[in-house]
Design a protein around this nucleic acid. Structure first.
Length: 506
RNA sequence: GGCAGCGUAGCUCAGUUGGUGAGAGCGCCGGAUUCAUAACCCGGAGGUCGGCAGUUCAAAUCUGCCCGCUGCUACCA
């Protein structure tokens, strides 16, 4: 039997500025999914990276007095560094300036052209020379003298530019059929409904090339044009899969921000249908993170650097908070206080304390030797039942991408384990019945082991250290080992707290 | 403007097809305890379930209207 595969991606980031919390959030959430799948026995490919072409980069590079490629080389570094700092277990960090990607996009274009879906036309719109950008009528503002101005207040003029078009209109019905036959294609449901309504409302053909700038991938056979950045960008998922007929395609899941759901669930499948390439199985649109309930913006001065946050709180605390406190798919809010409160409650008081209180008793009373479990009594049976239910809930939530619910289930198991411990009071048994004490400690340690195993996707570094302390062998840490307790008699290292409580400096 | 969704304890939220006295976690208060990271365990604290009206023997859960918020979409030109 071959190992099942799972190919998951984040959207690729546009590096015209510093990475922000949104990038960190998407990378972390997707990493959690990737790690979960690996632990669950899948062969996982995890793609993330940067989207480096387009007008904005071109302009920014010019403003910086640099060649576009030199400019993006500089700008991309912090994105990859952030991923590395956050423990993102990507298989490849793809850049749309990579050679194999350029070749793939051109091949994709040719397939779409061969299918008769690309034609030369004219793109008309309000164009600002100063911004080098087209604006929709609705975006324009009216100046004092009644003249039309761009949102930046620059003059615009009605401009006609030659452009290649994609026959998106041809794919309205196929897309509706896709949605109806595969409701899970767009998640969560609210996004599904929005996109279905959008497509049902009619689709116009899409301009997919530009002649007004050159920083992009050339249109095959018509080098005056560069391709529309979204066609270029979306195709990264194919490049990362190994090509048009790549071994990893189709993707099992694209994790993207809610603002780009349309590109991924309308344009992307239409492009693929046109090229005769299989479609991804699902697109999940996550929400945005708000700083104390407010949108992050430079003018509000509330933009935070995720790398700085990770340094200040610890990577695992940040990962835990984002997955636990924010319902995956909804917008979420964060603040220093909320992070401290949440992680102290769950990690320090919860998982960390559970491990520490049981391990320290083993160290002090049993010479650090893993005790033997006894015949299960009533409290052991209750503990086991709670863990079976909790584990089921955890897996159901994870497989449904309800990351926050999975952690809720996990914390329920922590509560059950702490309850079991308090109920049996091994510290009292130490004076009256050391054999029973050893059994209680053994049961608690195994409960802790299960909790920590399941917590691995979320807090990989901390759980590794905890599993070391719990005597769990390196090859007994995936989910197939859930029911394999540590052998009695094993000598455990002396315990050390993994999640010290933290306080906010006033 | 149209479509969709939301508004439940201080905070974040659960609440199947209407029916045990409205829930969980965190925070807070009290108790107990001392193995542990002033942690854990137990108990409590009472929120007009956005507002008004209606349907019903019975509504947080159905209907209408209103207020507030969000998303998608359209338009005013």
């Amino acid at each position: 039997m071959s190992t099942p595969r799972f190919y998951v991606t984040t959207a690729i980031a546009y590096p015209n500025g510093r990475p922000h919390m949104g990038h960190a959030y998407e990378a972390i959430a997707t990493d959690v999914i990737a790690r979960f799948k690996r632990l669950d026995g899948f062969d996982v490919r995890f793609l993330t990276g940067t989207d480096e072409h387009g007008l904005k980069i071109d302009q920014a590079a010019r403003a910086a007095g640099k060649a576009p490629k030199a400019y993006v080389d500089e700008m991309v570094a912090p994105f990859q560094a952030l991923d590395d700092a956050l423990g993102i277990s990507y298989s490849r960090f793809i850049r749309t300036t990579d050679a194999d990607h350029k070749a793939l996009v051109q091949a994709l274009w040719q397939r779409m052209a061969a299918n008769g879906d690309l034609y030369l036309g004219r793109y008309e719109g309000w164009y600002s020379v100063r911004d080098e950008a087209y604006y929709d009528e609705a975006e324009l503002v009216t100046g004092e003298d009644g003249a039309k101005l761009s949102p930046q207040g620059t003059p615009v003029e009605w401009t006609v530019e030659e452009s290649w078009f994609f026959r998106l209109s041809r794919y309205q019905q196929p897309l509706l059929d896709l949605y109806d036959s595969q409701p899970g294609f767009i998640q969560p449901t609210s996004r599904f409904n929005e996109m279905r309504a959008f497509v049902a409302g009619g689709l116009s053909d899409l301009s997919v090339s530009r002649t007004s700038f050159s920083w992009g991938i050339k249109v095959p056979g018509d080098e005056r044009h560069v391709m529309y950045v979204w066609l270029d960008a979306l195709a990264n998922y194919l490049t990362g899969a190994g090509g048009l007929d790549g071994e990893w395609w189709p993707a099992d899941l694209h994790v993207v921000g809610k603002d780009v759901v349309r590109f991924h669930t309308v344009y992307w499948p239409a492009f693929l249908m046109s090229a005769g390439v299989a479609l991804p199985k699902a697109v999940f649109g996550h929400g945005f993170l708000l700083n104390r309930g407010e949108k992050m913006s430079k003018s509000l001065g509330n933009v935070v650097d995720p790398a700085e946050m990770a340094t200040r709180f610890g990577v695992d605390r940040l990962r835990w908070f984002l997955c636990r406190e924010v319902a995956f798919g909804d917008d979420g809010s964060y603040s220093d206080e909320a992070i401290v409160e949440r992680t102290n409650a769950d990690l320090a008081n919860g998982i960390g304390n559970l491990a520490q209180r049981s391990l320290s008793m083993v160290a002090k009373n049993l010479n650090g030797m893993m005790p033997q479990r006894g015949e299960p009594g009533e409290t052991e049976v209750r503990l086991k039942e709670a863990f079976l239910a909790g584990t089921d809930a955890y897996f159901a939530a994870m497989n449904g991408l309800a990351l926050h619910k999975a952690l809720d289930a996990l914390m329920g198991m922590v509560t059950a384990a702490n309850g079991y411990f308090a109920e049996n009071a091994p510290w009292a048994l130490a004076k009256t019945d050391t054999a029973r004490m050893a059994e209680v400690l053994a049961a608690t340690l195994d409960a802790t082991r299960r909790i920590v195993l399941l917590a691995q996707p979320f807090i990989p570094d901390s759980t590794n250290r905890l599993l070391d302390q719990l005597g769990v062998a390196a090859d007994a840490r995936d989910f197939s080992a859930l029911n394999s307790p540590v052998e009695a008699g094993l000598e455990l290292p002396s315990p050390a707290g993994v999640f010290p409580r933290i306080t906010i400096e006033a």
